[in-house]
Amino acid sequence: MDDQRLTNALKNLFGYSKFKPGQQETLKALLANQMTLAILPTGTGKSLCYQMYGWLVQRPVLIISPLISLMQDQVKELKFLGEKRVVALNSQLERMDREFALKHLANYHFVFVSPEMATQTRIVQILKQINWGLFVVDEAHCISQWGPDFRPDYLQLGKLRQELNYPLTLALTATATNEVKQDISHRLFIERQPKIICYSVNRPNIYLSVLEAKTIDQKNQILFSLLKQLRMPGLIYFNSRKATEKTANLINEKLSLTAAAYHADLTQAERFAVQQQFMQQQLEIVCATSAFGMGINTKKCTFCDPLSFAD
């Protein structure tokens, strides 16, 4: 498929007039039947690559995703785009609904599943019955012990690909050092090396600055001053879970803003509630640890400003 036909398809399927960096190159690699590792910056629409490919070739797509909230967000987006044949297999799915989905899995166009569930013996046997058009590993840096979010269960995905007879595969991540690239290629792409598509993480619209504070009170005053300049809603990142709750309470008490904390100690329901309130702009500030970064669809977060605030 040439560039013009791809652009026309992009317009028809998503309403966009041009691709973001890396999207078109990734799609062309997949359409040429090339195993692909795509390292594309956050916010460049990595999920569009497998969504569009699935619609172009009209074959089922299996997506390995590390977080329930990320799966739910992608399912919601696909349904908004009109795709009804989509399911996320995870612990949030009622048992009867999960059994129904597994029984009729061949009828779905997009199937999201966690690495823990995908590598269960029973699930593998079901997955083997389907001729997958594309096997996607989202947040692929989780494969590497050198990555920031190493997940041991990701190490089984190379074997899963083998069980599925090495389907066309797309590994996606926002950042990867040379060590991580090599680790992903070695552990996931067992039979042959992938085409690596890599774009710089440099974002000209992001400004980094460091302000030092000698006391807690001074640090809070700096924070309050920055919040007055922040385009709402906004994110404030912290190094500890305790600091997220303490600061969220402080903002609610001292400023006329609505704030909430987000961290791994919250229940799944609590995290999902904060996420949805943030996405629907019902919360003005979220004080979060890095757990928030992997649980949201950043394509929808162009309306927010981030701050990093060391504890």
Rank of each mutant, 00 (worst) to 15 (best):
L155S: 00
Q156P: 02
L157M: 05
L157V: 03
G158N: 02
K159H: 03
L160N: 05
L160P: 08
R161L: 01
Q162G: 07
L164M: 03
L164N: 04
L164H: 05
P167E: 04
L168C: 09
T169R: 03
T169L: 00
T169S: 12
T169C: 11
L170V: 11
L172Y: 09
A174L: 02
T175K: 01
A176D: 01
T177H: 04
T177D: 01
T177V: 05
T177R: 07
N178K: 13
E179M: 06
V180Q: 00
V180T: 02
K181Q: 01
K181D: 00
K181N: 01
K181S: 01
Q182T: 10
D183K: 07
I184Q: 03
I184T: 01
I184D: 04
I184Y: 09
S185C: 13
S185E: 02
S185W: 05
H186F: 09
H186Y: 12
R187G: 00
R187Q: 04
R187I: 05
L188Y: 01
F189I: 07
F189P: 10
F189D: 10
F189K: 11
I190E: 10
E191G: 07
R192M: 11
R192I: 09
R192C: 08
R192S: 11
R192Y: 08
P194T: 09
P194C: 10
K195Q: 14
K195N: 10
I196G: 09
I197E: 07
I197G: 03
C198R: 12
Y199N: 11
Y199P: 08
V201L: 12
V201S: 11
N202K: 13
N202V: 07
R203H: 08
P204C: 11
P204Q: 08
N205A: 14
N205D: 14
N205E: 11
N205Q: 13
N205L: 15
N205C: 15
I206W: 05
Y207S: 14
L208S: 12
L211D: 15
L211F: 14
L211T: 15
A213Q: 13
K214T: 14
T215D: 10
I216L: 14
I216H: 13
I216W: 13
D217H: 15
Q218I: 13
Q218S: 12
Q218A: 15
N220H: 09
N220V: 06
N220W: 05
N220Y: 09
Q221M: 08
S225N: 11
L226W: 10
L227R: 07
L227I: 03
L227Y: 07
K228T: 11
K228G: 09
Q229H: 07
R231F: 04
R231Q: 14
